[in-house]
Amino acid sequence: MRIVTLGKARDAAAASDFRQQLAYGSLLLPLALIAISLLLGLYEIRVETVAKALLSLVVPQAAEGISSTELTLILRIRLPRVLSAALIGAALASTGAAFQGIFKNPLVDSNLLGVTSGAGFGAALALLLGGTALMVQGFAFGFGLLAVMVAYAGSRLYSSAPLIVLTLMGILIGSFFTSLTALTKYVADPLNTLPAITFWLLGGLTGVTWSSLPLLALITLSGSAFMWAVRWRLNILSLGDAEALALGMNPTRLKLLIILCATLMTAAAVAVGGVIGWIGLVIPHAARLLVGTDHKRLVPMSLALGASFLLVIDNISRTLLPAEVPLGILTGLVGVPILIVLLRRSQTVW
């Protein structure tokens, strides 16, 4: 809705317009980065080869003349990995932004209710029992959901201050599962199982193939679509429950739906990529610095920035050294200095 303004207000409106264009335009960034990421890798593949391989998905004849090794590497190794990185980054960043809005707390990410801690324990347990990669993903997803269900059920016992109680239960359940994970690491065989658990907990997309992608894509895309649809309602939720009720919304139901959606997205993301920290916390802040706190612009920007950031990090992780650098290490090392630079350039954060 355009309001006719004069003087300083007109500049503010122009700035707001620019931010809106930036927020929606930024969605092109992950797509561009996906294309660039397909060209990067330890195995040298020429640009034309990559282009022809991608074309062969539509037109099979285009794949003539490409060696099967290169074709497999592009279509079965790089493509699913790059897509997973984009999806996971988008999922973690948007759920972080949503939680920061619902809980009116700039210091939280989607692990507030314990989903990442629960998923970490599930994966550690599966590795301790000697399970396959599929079992590890399944356990991680299941225990992530379990953690949040327990936290939510616990908070329903107190109706006086639901938000605070929910936060508290989430923290308690999260630390409970963290302790359980520590127990798993303690009893694990130190020569083989313990390093496997540690590597998994640091986050990585090493063995991602097409088999991991369908569920992740389904959950992330539908979850992001839901977040997109309710993004302006997040503005109202962040005003407080009383205001939201007065404006005709049902804040309890909406919060429940958003928490459910965010939990599913985070659980799926962690099940595939391990524990990747900092994205849910830092990316929404970076997005706020660029487009402001209006969730109508913040949610698209978080999605785009989260996907792009994790794509860049994953590219570094898989091309820097012959061995993979865990993602959880790089997100912190790279993300925190970037945020400090962004903070220095801006006056307001929240």
């Binding site: 330890l42 590497l73 190794i77 390093p195 898989r318 012959p322 061995a323």
Partner: peptide
């Protein structure tokens, strides 16, 4: 060429090495 203890690598690196033989450790599944 790798250092340290066990290392995670991705399939592109294995394609670069293209080993003649793969040996799996006695433990694990």
């Amino acid at each position: 060429g790798l250092t340290g203890y066990w290392n995670d690598v991705n399939l592109e690196q294995v394609a670069l090495w293209n080993p003649d033989v793969i040996v799996i450790a006695p433990y694990g599944n």
